[in-house]
Design a protein around this nucleic acid. Sequence first.
DNA 1: ACGGGTATGTCAGTTACTGACATCAACCGT
DNA 2: ACGGTTGATGTCAGTAACTGACATACCCGT
Lengths: 178, 178
Amino acid sequence: MIRAAVELFVERGFEQTTAGDIAERAGVTERTFFRHFADKREVLFDGSKTMERTAYDAILAAPADLSPLDAALAGVVAGGSLLEGRRDHAIRRSKIIAANPSLQERELLKLAAMADTAAEALRTRGVAEPAASLAAHSAVTVFQVGFAHWLSAEVPAEEPQDVATCIAQAAAALRALT
Amino acid sequence: MIRAAVELFVERGFEQTTAGDIAERAGVTERTFFRHFADKREVLFDGSKTMERTAYDAILAAPADLSPLDAALAGVVAGGSLLEGRRDHAIRRSKIIAANPSLQERELLKLAAMADTAAEALRTRGVAEPAASLAAHSAVTVFQVGFAHWLSAEVPAEEPQDVATCIAQAAAALRALT
DNA sequence: ACGGGTATGTCAGTTACTGACATCAACCGT
DNA sequence: ACGGTTGATGTCAGTAACTGACATACCCGT
């Protein structure tokens, strides 16, 4: 169904395709669609829980001597690495989202959820508030900036950037801020 | 209408009140409600554009020798100061939002919009990307954390905290991160 | 063969929102 | 005073996102 949905969103746009359209192309009923996805938007955010858990685990697994910010960054790098090799799909998806405010809202909610569980992971590492929240949200901001750069990067021939590198560059820019 | 809406949201909750309910209590038609507010959620985010512009102006008006992060922080402090003296209303509002994911999405969108225009202001100050985005989003994160603390602070008798102080504390915590 | 669990179809209902059109009052220039 | 314009509102019909209730089919272990 995800494939069917993305196809239709690319063809006619998100608002112009109804849940019934997606269901029809996928060969099921509209009701069935809503049993698999809480709402029409959710179909574009399938992997988010996986990414969230990956980041959480990576933060807990990070070396104990890492600073809170570095641990959080390790988390978002691990999460972002899940998208490695799926750049074209990520680009299509991000174009769909960029064209629709309600999808941007959902994306922000997912990112906020990731930041919240990252903060939770930091807290179990012994980081106190508000440092945990601040480090987690900063790391997610770095993720957003690095990820956007990864998507927009020209890849002419020789230098295929990977997600981790882009995030590391954004992290360096954040540190330069102080 | 805003007053009518907040009343009903407190009485029965957000989902349990229909747009028609709000309109009725306000003495207008449902159609009229939707002419004033783009959707039912928007009724809780009336002041956001004002706050956004205030932050933007404050960033442009900040001393030229301020660092990007400090300029952005000056912006969110100016924006947050608009809420000074309306703490009880802010608390009621934030409880309503906390109880409803779709309202959280909208709030995140507004905060992201504020971060984006703050980044724009930094750019006209000559700050390059990605520093502008990173500083702006970091400042908004600091705003969130400081604002939450302002809302939750116990105010027994002697020490009424103001918004700017809470944000400054959160900013200090962010700097301590590096 | 049977009973239970899980995925799906069917159908009716609610609600958020939108477009088209009518109404009405305030206001403006002559 | 009068006709015209403008802006806010009411009315009504329609679309589409969901939801709950119920029926049906399939699959699996006994």
